[in-house]
Amino acid sequence: MANPSMTHSFRDSPVLRPSGLIVLALVAALVAIMTMTGSRITLSLFAQAAIISIMALSVGFLARTADLISFGHAAPFGLGAYGTALIFRHGIPAELGILLVLLAVFALFFVMGLVVGKLNGIAFSMLTLALGQFFFVAVSKLRAITSGADGMNVSVPSSLFGLPGRTFQTPDGMLVIASVVLAALVIAIYLFEATRTGRLAMGVRENEERVLFLGYRTKLLKAAVLATSATIAGVSGVLFALYQGFVSPEIMHWSFSGNALIMAILGGSLAVWGPVAGALVFFFLREWLSDLTEHWHSVLGAILIAVTVAWPGGVTALAKVVRARLTGRKQGEAGK
């Protein structure tokens, strides 16, 4: 009988190699230093950037694992955020409620994945756009439940996941929490890619038909990847609601999905951490430019076009080139 275990094991995962562990330690040290020395405004910006990075990670995970481009990930983000606001409003036990919200997001998008399983490319993207706008309109119109365009306050309980509720609403507290969640998700995705299912997902991305003919039900796998990606976006939405203390329909608008996609593209898909880097670059570039000029959209657009043309693989491709130069390897070997 064939041994189906894959060559790859967790030990081979880049995140558990010495270089990966060093990077993780450096990031942890950086976050610790910032919380001790950073100003409130700086910490707040980094806390928001970390939350948005999780959103970009979800879009990048879907693109990297299933080669699917979503224009509608603001929907699971918003469902996570609104779900959190609603469970707090209705007095549902907070931890259980958040878990149920995330499970509901997973279930919803798993079913959606089964229904649209055969769609790829632009058809899938358009469908996610339509779905995202459906939820945007729904939260805007269902005033009795969501307060419509007025938005909803999020009443964070006094204690949540063993921490004081206030911790989730302070810049330093949220920066640490969001960074830990982000790091855990990046590690989890790296480890997933080293599993048999992760390698199978990579096979589906390369040639779904071939994997199907080997006897795998690829539709289930793609649905699970979409649902997992949506749940990660939901986690981002939960953190957003906890930190901001307020949710409104704008967070489910298609332009928010578009921003997340731009972050993922800017970061590139050569590494799991690409969308996170893209989100940080995008977020701080936007903050910096908006201080300089009211026409920051145009400047940001021009920069993004230039970066995309110069480095189509995004920040991850650029990092590989830099790394190859530092280690003296030829550029062509950099991607290996």
């Binding site: 009988m1 064939a2 041994n3 894959m6 390698r199 390369e206 040639n207 071939r210 080997l214």
Partner: peptide, 23 residues
């Protein structure tokens, strides 16, 4: 042939054991 180009030879082979039929 339709091999999966970015997976290693061993990974390609192991994907072939999808259903673990005895043999």
């Amino acid at each position: 042939r339709m091999i999966l180009p970015n997976l290693s030879i061993e990974e390609n082979l192991k994907l072939g054991a999808a259903l673990r039929r005895p043999g």
